[in-house]
Amino acid sequence: MRASFRLGRVAGVPVGVNWSVLVIFLLIAWALSAVQFPRAYPGRSLVEYWAAGLAAAVVFFLGLLAHEVSHSVVARRNGIGVEGITLWLFGGVSQLKGEARDPGAELRIAGVGPLVSLLIGAFFGAIAVALSLAGVHGLLLGSLAWLAGINVLLAIFNILPAAPLDGGRLLRAAVWKATGDRTKASVVAARAGRILGVVLIGLGLWQFIAGAGVGGLWLALIGWFLIGAAGVEEQQARMGSALRGVRVADVMTPQPQTASGAMTVADFVDNYLFAYRHTALPLTDGDGHPVGLVTLDRVRGIPADRRAATTLGEVACRADELVLARPDEDLTELLPRLSECADGRALVVTDQRLVGIVSPSDISRAVQRGSLRDQLTPGGH
């Protein structure tokens, strides 16, 4: 999930927000301000309802951020790098640079998020109880009670034993510890996620038919998302098993042909296109440092009458979007980063100079060979 814009850093971790957050933020604020608070506390002004609803929605998303930051902090303490955190429609995601090295690390990283949400819920709940005992009632108490309940609910939902929820990670840690097989543990957690997704879709549709309206459809949408995400996790687990022990240098195309960003698209099409065997062309400066990446799809998008006036540098994947890798890096560590640039390639560098390129077809061939290796090796998965 890519961030639409950056908020800054929290605990040293870059934090971004996807545009879809606006959808759920407005939905929560509207439900509180226009439905729940007026029904529970009649007689207040529209401004008071919306002020309380917006404030509660903002604090809720700050709680989601704290949940994800806790994952990132514990991941770094367990030797795993963190690319950043992105808040989106279904909550948040911490983009880790690798996998937990053992079941204990997996348990700590996964378990801290629900624990933080539970503590936040308990904090707001304690304040609400104290205010209630002191005779304070109204929108303030209602907002605090809602924040307490929603964070406790978030913690409970997240510990359900199904990937990609935190509970799925906990299940994976348990199965991994019991069997010693990370891949089997990941597949078990992913299949549990599919089962939970089907249950949520069925429950949501039943609620919708029974008159729950948008709430039922939202539950079904969450179930649909879980099924898709669980399927991706199972695929990644099997891919990771097939690629274990494979380095970037084992699959890359060494010393690829390069071009200058100053070359025009017309010059490339007229003089280089048919001589070049690949669909992606790295751009380098005079010292061999990668500065961009051009694909045939990007070139194809330039109208013929503009090609002579457009340089490859203008249509390339920019330098700050490039995915760079080392030859000795494990291929499984590179895979999560390949989605960072829309072109899906990685440039391999040594001392900041280009020495190779990894494409989706290179990954596909490596997976096929790795799967064959596992089938032919006694005890392979």
Rank of each mutant, 00 (worst) to 15 (best):
C341Y: 01
G168W: 01
L46A: 14
R77F: 08
I222W: 03
G104W: 08
L312Y: 10
S117T: 09
A122L: 15
L338Y: 01
A220K: 07
A128C: 11
P336N: 01
A325Q: 09
L107A: 08
Y276I: 10
L139Q: 00
W50D: 03
G231L: 07
L165V: 00
R365C: 09
T253F: 01
G125A: 12
R326N: 09
A266C: 02
A55N: 12
D270Y: 02
D181Y: 10
I127Y: 07
L107E: 11
W224N: 12
V367P: 02
L32V: 00
V214M: 11
A55S: 13
I302T: 03
A308Y: 03
T279Q: 15
P256Q: 06
I357Y: 00
A31E: 01
A122P: 12
E233Y: 03
L196N: 07
T279C: 11
W19L: 15
L65R: 02
F61C: 11
V152S: 09
D320P: 12
G111W: 06
G215Q: 11
R300K: 14
I80Y: 02
S260F: 11
A148L: 03
Q255S: 13
V269Q: 07
Y49T: 08
W176S: 12
R169N: 04
P336A: 04
G167V: 02
A242Y: 06
Q375D: 13
V112S: 15
I159L: 08
L96G: 05
V10G: 07
R247H: 04
V188E: 09
V10K: 08
A40C: 00
G104I: 09
V15F: 07
A316W: 05
L140D: 03
G121V: 11
F124L: 13
G91H: 00
R194P: 01
S241R: 08
V291R: 14
T311P: 12
L221G: 02
D328E: 15
A122W: 10
R101L: 13
L131I: 07
